[in-house]
């Protein structure tokens, strides 16, 4: 199993690497297209601001590579958001893998949403052995609207898509690497897809 975490300079990837290490897997950090293309599983992380993360992707030409990948790809947090059509954050055009737009929570709730919330209506094999209503850790100010690619929903101000799937592409808004045993199970499921 060759596992690669895409390293394009956006955020804390150490935690993801450690989470896989706890599962007994060594993940390689790389921005090299050859290394990424030859992997069995690919993690697309991201923390920070959307437009600057997108610019970093473009600089390393990963914006054209990622949508063409054939193996299972898991976008986490901002990684998932960049896989969508667009984001209100920095008026950013996304990779267009998921046919949904990213909006900002309105100020009727505290922004960012920070902490543990439940994922419900889980429908994908990414969530094998995950119970409906399981708690996951989330930190975000922007969300994906509910759409037909949603594989779980979460409620904060409104129901939004907390995970997405289209073909070999998966995305989760929560941080599986920080979501205790349940999060570890999601990562294990991704490896076992």
């Amino acid at each position: 199993m060759k596992l690669v975490i895409i390293d394009y300079g956006a955020g804390n990837i150490k935690s993801i690497q450690f989470a896989f290490k706890r599962l007994g897997l060594d993940a390689v950090l790389s921005s090299d297209p050859d290394v990424i293309t030859s992997a069995d599983r690919i993690i697309f992380p991201g923390v920070g601001e959307a437009s600057s993360a997108m610019n970093m992707l473009k600089l390393s030409k990963l914006d054209t590579l990622i949508p063409q990948l054939k193996q299972p790809v898991l976008g986490i947090c901002l990684g998932m958001q960049l896989m969508c059509n667009s984001s209100e954050e920095g008026d950013t055009k996304g990779l267009g893998i998921f046919n949904v737009d990213i909006k900002r929570f309105s100020n009727t709730v505290k922004v960012p949403q920070m902490g543990w919330n439940t994922i419900t209506d889980v429908t994908s094999n990414l969530f094998t052995n995950i119970k409906d209503g399981e708690f996951m850790y989330l930190v975000h100010s922007y969300y994906a609207e509910m759409c037909h690619e949603a594989i779980s929903s979460t409620h904060y101000q409104l129901d939004y898509a907390s995970a997405l799937q289209k073909d070999n592409f998966y995305g989760v808004q929560f941080h599986p690497e920080k979501s205790g045993e349940a999060g570890a199970q999601v990562l294990k499921n991704f490896i076992n897809l």
Partner: peptide, 11 residues
């Protein structure tokens, strides 16, 4: 911090 990140699965 490095050791905590390695062994602890909450934020």
């Amino acid at each position: 911090v490095l050791k905590v990140a390695e062994h602890v699965n909450i934020p």
